[in-house]
Simulated assay, not measured.
Amino acid sequence: MSVLSVLDPAVTVAHAVVSAIAHVLPTALAIVLFVLAVRLCLHPLARAAARGEKARSKLAPKVAELNKKHRNSPEKAREALAELYRKEQVSPFAGCLPMLVQIPFFSVMYRLFTTPNDLLDHTLFGVPLGLHVGNAHGAGQFAVFGLLYAGLAAVGYVNYRRARRAAAAAQTTPQPGAALLPYLSFASVLFAVLVPVAAGLYLLTTSVWSASERAWLYRGTNQAPAAALAL
């Protein structure tokens, strides 16, 4: 059984929920409200991930010191790090599990807004929600895509600035390829070009939520999430 088939029941339920909302509100607005509701339900997991990342960040100087001290003895380094995490009651993987648990939810929403279904027959400002930019024609349709891309680019810029500030505050030895990481903030713009309007609307909504959520959870610090799910 494939992963896609396992997600089918969840996609069906999600479709039913969005359809129910769309009976009283425009479908595009129903999509936005559904995504916001899902992200609100997942917020406790995001909080747990933030706590884990902050705990690991706090221990980072000690971890670096132990690695340097035992750089010629990997076995002693592992033992020392294990003792440090045990003493501080912090898991080296703290924050990772809550993030991984969210992946199925994002996968369900992505499938719902990219797989052909009756929801995508509705429109946003007269543009079909199932339309891809490659099939667009007329100023009106391109304007809708332009607004979606502009919104994603704006959120990407906010995330980019935060990532740059976090990197500067860390003042650690740059790792290979680290300089390119902040630019991944704009990946959603490139991805949006490949998906229909409905998925673009989903990406914009969830990206705005993620940026706002990170700003709140990491307020007062220069730390940025090591891996942020925005899809």
Rank of each mutant, 00 (worst) to 15 (best):
M1R: 14
V3G: 02
L4T: 04
L4E: 10
V6N: 09
P9N: 12
P9T: 15
H15F: 05
V18Q: 03
S19R: 11
A20S: 01
L29C: 01
L29T: 00
V32K: 01
L33K: 04
L33V: 13
F34K: 01
L40I: 02
C41F: 10
H43F: 10
P44T: 05
A46M: 14
R47V: 11
A48N: 10
S57D: 13
S57A: 10
L59A: 10
L59Y: 15
A60E: 02
A60M: 05
A60N: 04
P61M: 08
K62C: 05
A64C: 04
K69W: 06
S73A: 10
S73N: 15
E75M: 03
A77S: 12
A77M: 08
R78F: 15
E79G: 07
A80C: 11
L84E: 02
R86L: 09
K87Y: 02
E88D: 13
E88T: 05
Q89V: 06
V90E: 13
P92N: 11
M99T: 04
M99V: 07
M99F: 03
Q102L: 11
I103Y: 00
M109V: 11
M109A: 10
R111F: 14
T115S: 13
T115H: 14
N117L: 09
D118S: 13
L119T: 02
L120V: 08
D121H: 14
P128A: 08
P128V: 12
G130K: 05
G130V: 02
H132M: 03
G134V: 07
G134F: 15
H137G: 14
A139H: 09
F142E: 00
A143Y: 07
A143E: 06
A143Q: 03
A143F: 15
V144S: 05
L147V: 15
A150I: 01
G156P: 13
Y157G: 00
Y157E: 03
V158F: 10
N159V: 01
N159M: 13
Y160T: 03
R161M: 09
R161P: 03
R161C: 06
R162D: 15
R164T: 12
R165K: 06
R165A: 07
A168S: 07
A169E: 06
P174F: 12
P174A: 05
Q175D: 03
G177S: 01
L181A: 04
L181R: 00
L184H: 08
L184D: 06
F186Q: 09
F186T: 07
A187Y: 13
A187G: 09
L190Q: 00
L190Y: 03
F191V: 12
P196C: 00
V197I: 06
L201E: 09
Y202T: 02
T205D: 02
T206G: 04
S212F: 04
A215L: 06
L217Y: 04
Y218M: 14
R219C: 02
G220A: 12
G220L: 12
N222A: 10
Q223M: 07
P225I: 03
A226I: 00
A227L: 11
A228P: 05
L229T: 09
A230Q: 15
A230F: 13
